[in-house]
Design a binder for these strands. Structure first.
Lengths: 341, 341
DNA sequence: GCGAAAAAGGAAACCGGTGTCAAAGCGATT
DNA sequence: AATCGCTTTGACACCGGTTTCCTTTTTCGC
């Protein structure tokens, strides 16, 4: 330390090493045109002084900072947190940091909030989680403010460079295949809320798969939910009250599946013997309830890493997979039955 | 916009308004010595140009940025996310932003990681969540780097200005009181992992409350857990295998309580008729399992807000409560029994 | 109407980096 | 030895704010 109590600056390093600031800057930025012994000399001084470049000064000079933003409307705590960890995987050992911004999907000020946030913070780029990733207006704001962005989603929301996609549709197909393979024919669907791309994709995946198996999906077996626990409960209540109730329910997310499970248990039904259940998301709860829930897991952490890399190194974007494959986690909420019908 | 495609700067505002940079700066910073009409004139230009001060330039000139850090080792996704939202409540409409940094408690590089993070980002201040908030070395690093910090915790870990505390001990007492009031006498404890202050506090609260009711706590009714689901399951297995099993179990967190619940259900027991259960944390799962879990809720969001305010406005620290009171959420996992014994 | 004090505003330096461009160093060629 | 061309280095301006210090203007008492 040259001045007591102050962090050393590039000037201190330059003075001690007997070179110019610019040369120190070249060392920091790994400029190729530097004599090896100059580089070593400067590096020695940097180490000796414990010099660390001031990110704010760098940000100012470069006219861009090293902050990645995460915009989300908390679809699910575990999902958001896994995403954060995935981003950290990508930015570990870089100078980037992750700024989070939870927003309220239902606020009338949503777009203004986001615009203010982006204008004020001038982020390097921002990642947008579903469901708000589906709002084109937000992408529009990013473009307008010249802020890099990547949208996470289950549909082709944007150009590949701005999109990291999961294949919800196929994944639901696998789940349905599993139910059919277990002998189920009368399979109900609890949908997601209207207007959500993920809900549309999951529902489409369900319908396509049922059709592939030549199974009818009568209207009474499709109940609309809103991704919340209570709606799953209500939907299950409605389904179980049918004259000919389903033997299996696919819910478009875990929370609703767990709602359905709770209702079934309240009704005294045994899951999976009396009713098989599949969810979507593989929230940690899914494995912790009884019986453990069979569900679709999407590789959120890897997707987060890919999203961050797309922002940090857009050049490598082509090498980054943009479409991620979900897995069916087979647990104990699905029983094999003898097809009655 | 004065130059196409560029954000307006303070110079642009000054030029258009016909004043000096300094005057614009005074307007932004609400300096008191300004003629009202000068202020209005500048404000009009600011609005007209859509000028927003560059946070990086401000950070450089002020030698401090406006980033609050959150250091955590994901004790629980919902807790972390609630905390983030609480911080947002505090920094909404300010220029601050929230940077998150998940770390790995078990990594040998934990302290180096944290030090690098703080050195590189030069945050305004950092909030530390339990359990790593209990590590004094981390606070030591913050002090050394002159980085503001606040620790969240259930014990008196630090001076009041660096601490936001929850009263786990009393809260557990309330939970035990509830069990006793419901007729339970043989109450078991599933502890948290060794070395966690929260675990110590919760255990102490349990013991003190039992003593207050003149109830014995034989050694076989205290089983060590580690806050994870599986350990709750294992502990319950051990407890239910006793010749004289408990009629109620208090688990030091929800995850373990839910593990215990799952085991009881696997064993064919009815909860709460055959076994009452109380957890701690009020994770969202708690309300969504069957039966809904009676548990202790700590006001994490308010605590987060208080922590952020302590960093942003240390002067008001005295007005900020530093000790937060937890509530017992009475749900359906506790039954009233006739005291047998 | 005058002078002094107080208030308001501006010029220039500074925060700690990076970009531009010219100069210096240096080996090879003539 | 002088010239050429390439690599390496440095001086200086600049990024967009704040701070210091000084000048100008306003206010007010007499």
């Amino acid at each position: 330390m040259t001045k007591a109590g102050q962090n050393p600056t590039i000037n201190d390093v330059a003075r001690v090493a007997g070179v110019s600031k610019k040369t120190v800057s070249r060392v920091i930025n790994r400029s190729p045109m530097l004599k090896p012994d100059t580089r070593q000399k400067v590096e020695a001084v940097i180490a000796e002084l414990g010099y660390i470049p001031n990110p704010q000064a760098r940000a100012l000079a470069l006219r861009r900072n090293f902050l990645l933003g995460l915009l989300h409307d908390n679809p699910n705590a575990q999902t958001v947190l896994n995403f954060q960890e995935g981003v950290l995987d990508a930015i570990r050992d870089t100078e980037f940091a992750l700024v989070v911004r939870p927003v309220d999907r239902h606020s009338p000020d949503l777009l203004d909030d986001i615009r203010n946030f982006l204008e004020q913070q001038r982020l390097y780029g921002v990642m947008i989680l579903p469901p708000i990733s589906e709002r084109d207006e937000i992408a529009e704001i990013c473009r307008e403010l010249r802020c890099g962005y990547v949208r996470m989603g289950s549909a082709e929301l944007d150009e590949p460079m701005h999109l990291v996609q999961s294949n919800d549709r196929e994944a639901v197909g696998v789940a349905v295949d599993h139910l059919v393979a277990c002998g189920h024919r009368r399979i109900a669907l609890i949908t997601g809320p209207e207007g959500f791309r993920s809900a549309i994709e999951r529902q489409a995946g369900f319908m396509e798969a049922m059709q592939r198996h030549d199974l009818a999906v009568p209207a009474e077996l499709v109940v609309e939910g809103n991704y919340r626990f209570e709606s799953g409960k209500a939907a299950a209540e409605q389904l179980l009250a049918l004259d000919n109730p389903p033997t299996a329910i696919f819910a478009c997310n875990d929370e609703m599946a767990i709602g359905a499970l709770q209702l079934a248990q309240q009704r005294g039904l045994n899951v999976p013997e009396d009713l098989s259940l599949i969810g979507f998301d593989d929230t940690p709860i899914a494995a912790h309830i009884w019986p453990p829930l069979t569900t679709v897991r999407w590789p959120i952490r890897k997707m987060a890493e890919a999203a961050a890399l797309k922002l940090i190194r857009p050049d490598d974007a082509d090498s980054q997979p943009a479409l991620f494959i979900s897995d069916l986690m087979r647990r104990q909420s699905v029983a094999t039955i003898s097809p009655q019908k």
